[in-house]
Simulated scan of single mutants.
Amino acid sequence: MGAGGDLPLLLALAALAAAESVAWAAVGVPELGGLAAAQAGLDLATGLVVSDPGPRAAQVLAVLLESVPVVLVGASVRVPERAVRRLRAVMRRSGAVLLAAGRWPGADVQLRVAPVGWTGVGRGHGLLRGRRVTVTAGGRGAAAAPRSAELWLPGPDGLVGVTDVTDVTDVTDAAGVTERGAAEAVRGGARADLRVVG
């Protein structure tokens, strides 16, 4: 993910990956709050948060990837290329999944998030009920062919899911652009990257 990232997508992916194993960890994700993690479906009782791994981030990640099946990594965490190769070996051995915000060398899958708009906003007023985004996946191997989907992140029910555009009647983007102008927001909007390694 880019600066600021798209934490809801990162948390949704982590919750899916941790569904069977339950345990998870977050490293260098200072914007992560307990309420957001719990609403995404992560069990706070089985999570471990390392706000700032410092200069030994590679060692911290290696220890966590040996013992925790799902590890989130913030965009500010920097790991040398040679350490990334060692971490990949740890993941192959342990079966752990690394979800990294921002640039991560050698990521298998890269997700790009482009904002489409919000539902619930009228002409300058209203209660935000859901946010629509377009998520595009690409990467290496089986993920080489890009695929896109429009998602609620989150939807009117607070959950992540695929949108049904026929049900959307009052979508605007953060600047008040109507549904008709939402395509322009997608083409010119800020993009976020998410890397999945493992």
Rank of each mutant, 00 (worst) to 15 (best):
G139M: 02
G4T: 09
V63D: 14
R147M: 11
A58V: 00
A36N: 11
S94F: 05
R93Q: 09
G120P: 14
L99I: 15
S51P: 09
G28C: 02
T169H: 09
A144D: 09
V135P: 01
A100G: 00
V162A: 07
P156W: 03
P80I: 08
L64V: 07
P105D: 08
G130T: 11
V71N: 07
A142S: 12
R131Y: 12
R78W: 06
L16G: 14
D173N: 09
M1D: 13
P80M: 10
D108M: 00
Q110N: 02
R82G: 10
T172I: 06
Q39R: 15
V196L: 14
R78A: 14
G28M: 02
G74N: 03
G158V: 06
T166P: 07
L13H: 10
R131M: 13
P115A: 10
A144I: 07
L48K: 01
P146F: 04
R56I: 04
P156N: 07
A12P: 08
G33T: 15
G126H: 09
M1Q: 14
D6Q: 13
V97L: 15
V68C: 10
R82A: 15
G181K: 07
A19E: 14
G198I: 01
A23C: 08
G139Q: 06
P53Y: 01
L72K: 02
L98N: 00
V160Y: 05
T46Q: 04
G141R: 00
A114R: 15
